[in-house]
Design a protein around this nucleic acid. Structure first.
Lengths: 122, 122
DNA sequence: CTGCGCCATAAGTGTTGACTTATATGAATC
DNA sequence: GATTCATATAAGTCAACACTTATGGCGCAG
């Protein structure tokens, strides 16, 4: 399964948002998602498996519970694929970047402009 | 259809890569993708429709042909959703980014970022 | 060792979407 | 206006995946 397919599901996106705030047990994640999406514990467990198998999360046993952590590998793959496109919508274009954007295809290193914080939700 | 679902298909990702190099006619895009993936003209046309309807591409008539252009809206949506996660794998933390990261998380993980400076590379 | 939370897996079902072939639309050419 | 090239749409098929219910495995308390 491709990294983009993993992020295609809204339940998995929500799980990742929750994990981004810190490690959580499967039970905590399940409770939240079951409430928001109206699906069963089994469905959430299957989603967590997909996240694990694709480098988006990891889990470790903590007594009878399983603690889940966010893992960067999956999103890094997505980010890497998107990187060459980012020049199209980064508003602060240097002269060099403008020339690249005009289609001459010459690539050079150029530091990215810092991102503004944007309050956006899914 | 969600922006992540659009990028979930490898044919559509390839079409976007081709469009990133500059505008192309449907025929040129079709020829390339048909050759690489072994699908029909009809299938490619349907993928182009998905790209159009979700803000990833636009088309204009140019005589009997249709010229396609890359559009930023779709990927911008993807990029916006990913923005809050990016702090997890960008080791180069500016003061601003550090503050954002601190403000978001109530519980922080023990892991500290190394304070070595690193040259950017691809 | 028995029973009970916690979580994962098995097995089956329905829906969605990517694909096919066939056909329609529309602009240029004769 | 008929033909042809370029592209889109129609209609149907098939497989993948997200979901369900049912059950299994594990850690721990009694």
């Amino acid at each position: 399964m491709h990294a983009f397919d993993v992020l295609g599901d809204p339940v998995r996106r929500r799980l990742l948002e929750l994990l981004a705030d810190g490690d959580r047990s499967a039970g905590e994640l399940t409770e939240e998602v079951v409430r928001e999406f109206g699906i069963t514990q089994s469905a959430v467990s299957q989603h967590l498996k997909v996240l694990r198998e694709n480098g988006f999360a990891s889990s470790r046993a903590e007594g009878p519970r399983r603690l889940y952590s966010f893992e960067t590998e999956g999103m890094r793959q997505v980010d890497d694929w998107m990187a060459p496109f980012r020049r199209f919508w980064t508003q602060r274009l240097s002269a060099l970047e403008t020339e690249i954007a005009r289609g001459k295809g010459e690539r050079r290193r150029q530091q990215e402009a810092p991102d503004e914080k944007k309050d956006d939700d899914d």
